[in-house]
Amino acid sequence: MATDAALRRLLRLHRTEIAVAVDSAFPLLHALADHDVVPEDKFQETLHLKEKEGCPQAFHALLSWLLTQDSTAILDFWRVLFKDYNLERYGRLQPILDSFPKDVDLSQPRKGRKPPAVPKALVPPPRLPTKRKASEEARAAAPAALTPRGTASPGSQLKAKPPKKPESSAEQQRLPLGNGIQTMSASVQRAVAMSSGDVPGARGAVEGILIQQVFESGGSKKCIQVGGEFYTPSKFEDSGSGKNKARSSSGPKPLVRAKGAQGAAPGGGEARLGQQGSVPAPLALPSDPQLHQKNEDECAVCRDGGELICCDGCPRAFHLACLSPPLREIPSGTWRCSSCLQATVQEVQPRAEEPRPQEPPVETPLPPGLRSAGEEVRGPPGEPLAGMDTTLVYKHLPAPPSAAPLPGLDSSALHPLLCVGPEGQQNLAPGARCGVCGDGTDVLRCTHCAAAFHWRCHFPAGTSRPGTGLRCRSCSGDVTPAPVEGVLAPSPARLAPGPAKDDTASHEPALH
């Protein structure tokens, strides 16, 4: 009773807030009518008042009428009001819900409408889902798969039609296919003929059939049928067999079959498995989609049935006599038709004709302190090069084509190399640097090759510096006499390219 009084008091307290929050009759008014909170006449009256005075006034009048009803109607109103779709449509209802007392429970059932309790003993237990329907569909599909699609060729003596089998029958139906081979029951999904010589313990000319048996419980189990008994694959494991010639990621696949039913060829011909030897223990289905393919039931050349050999690369099948050149017997292992072999060759040939990528240039590290003349020119003028003790990398590039010797140069053309002071002394051009340390401070000019250098860098042994005729380390061993002091540049003949010694390969005349 306390809860009923509290709900009535809360409705009177929030009546105006609810009326202002509800700006549309749908969905709240319609939901109240659906849950029998508002009768039909009051529903029509509220809609009429909404058209006349507006939605807030109409709902305020409806809530005032609701306060005169019993506690069950008020409880049902609060339940409908706080439904998710009403809270989404009328956003101003959320503060009312947040301020609702926590001790007021809106989930209690309506009085007088409590459903009768059902004894637990009368409640049926839930049924577990079964796979009976899938099993029945598999039974119905198996006879259809064994139905012949056409008439065999005159040369083929193997013609068999499976008798119709009602689904209610649980007995196995067997077809006489000759040579002791028996087909599987209607619940078998796949059958492959297997030679009895590969099964340990088999006697006589009995041949087993590799099947997948579907049981009534819905589970499946792969086994071997020899005669009327089934054997699990673990009985046929043979770890010492060295003649297993397995197909790549293979499961067994029928390579020879008669049109209309699988079996042995007439005249004692023995149908073979995809792999010879003992049956392997793992009978998992292969991951290669080509091995799941269903080959055609007629020859791809003459479009006739009979004894066919199936290609492992495509769905086509052929007569042995229709092949070019014809085959006398079934080859062992994987067999592919000429079209598949030709496609494989065409895929391999473009790969062989692809040009080989060019090898990157060989990189040879230079000892610290040495650099090529090109690196000396590329440096920024007026700045010493940083990191001189790091190992430089010199790339061996292809030799350029031989060019004509340089033409003779006048001494005026070499004027930018040297600057003559007032006393006739050779001065260095701006930006000249030593080729060893890279520093341009207090550098000297070689009178023979006009290269800038430090005496301490080229002659670290402490050799005394002569007063005139300074030469760098590369030119100090040259027998050519030094030019007379005061000459602007060496003779043009000295600039012609010539053979250089091994220790002077990195010091070429550089223009500054």
Score class of each variant (00 low, 15 high):
residue 240 G to L: 13
residue 134 A to P: 01
residue 259 K to T: 09
residue 270 E to M: 13
residue 185 S to N: 08
residue 6 A to W: 06
residue 136 E to V: 06
residue 55 C to Y: 05
residue 132 R to H: 04
residue 253 K to P: 03
residue 225 Q to E: 12
residue 266 P to W: 10
residue 112 G to L: 14
residue 24 S to K: 15
residue 241 S to F: 13
residue 255 L to V: 10
residue 182 Q to Y: 02
residue 272 R to K: 04
residue 3 T to P: 01
residue 32 L to F: 00
residue 80 V to I: 15
residue 47 L to A: 05
residue 62 L to T: 01
residue 231 Y to F: 11
residue 214 V to W: 04
residue 120 K to Q: 03
residue 167 E to G: 10
residue 103 D to V: 03
residue 247 R to F: 08
residue 128 L to Y: 14
residue 221 K to V: 06
residue 55 C to I: 13
residue 52 K to P: 01
residue 216 E to G: 11
residue 189 Q to D: 06
residue 182 Q to W: 02
residue 147 T to K: 07
residue 10 L to Y: 10
residue 112 G to S: 08
residue 200 P to K: 05
residue 113 R to I: 15
residue 212 Q to G: 04
residue 230 F to W: 09
residue 228 G to Q: 00
residue 29 L to S: 01
residue 172 Q to E: 03
residue 54 G to F: 01
residue 41 D to G: 02
residue 68 T to R: 03
residue 243 K to S: 10
residue 13 L to P: 03
residue 252 P to Y: 06
residue 79 R to T: 00
residue 28 L to D: 00
residue 7 L to F: 00
residue 266 P to R: 07
residue 94 Q to M: 15
residue 100 F to G: 01
residue 22 V to E: 00
residue 175 L to Q: 11
residue 242 G to L: 12
residue 74 I to S: 01
residue 25 A to I: 09
residue 79 R to A: 02
residue 217 S to W: 02
residue 29 L to A: 01
residue 263 G to V: 13
residue 160 A to Y: 11
residue 99 S to G: 04
residue 231 Y to R: 06
residue 151 T to Q: 13
residue 93 L to G: 01
residue 150 G to N: 02
residue 221 K to I: 00
residue 151 T to Y: 14
residue 52 K to N: 01
residue 9 R to N: 14
residue 124 P to D: 05
residue 238 D to Y: 12
residue 185 S to I: 03
residue 226 V to P: 11
residue 36 D to Y: 04
residue 38 V to Y: 05
residue 238 D to T: 07
residue 158 L to R: 03
residue 78 W to T: 06
residue 41 D to S: 06
residue 96 I to Q: 00
residue 270 E to S: 07
residue 193 A to H: 15
residue 7 L to R: 02
residue 46 T to Y: 04
residue 16 T to F: 01
residue 89 R to G: 03
residue 192 V to D: 05
residue 138 A to F: 12
residue 87 L to E: 15
residue 115 P to N: 10
residue 123 V to Y: 14
residue 133 K to G: 02
residue 188 V to N: 06
residue 226 V to E: 02
residue 131 K to Y: 02
residue 256 V to S: 11
residue 161 K to T: 08
residue 161 K to V: 11
residue 49 L to R: 10
residue 162 P to Q: 15
residue 30 H to W: 00
residue 101 P to F: 01
residue 117 A to T: 12
residue 162 P to N: 00
residue 190 R to I: 02
residue 170 A to G: 07
residue 125 P to H: 13
residue 253 K to C: 14
residue 180 G to T: 08
residue 161 K to D: 12
residue 12 R to E: 00
residue 101 P to I: 01
residue 7 L to I: 10
residue 215 F to I: 06
residue 123 V to N: 10
residue 81 L to G: 01
residue 67 L to I: 04
residue 21 A to M: 04
residue 191 A to Y: 00
residue 243 K to T: 11
residue 56 P to Y: 01
residue 21 A to T: 01
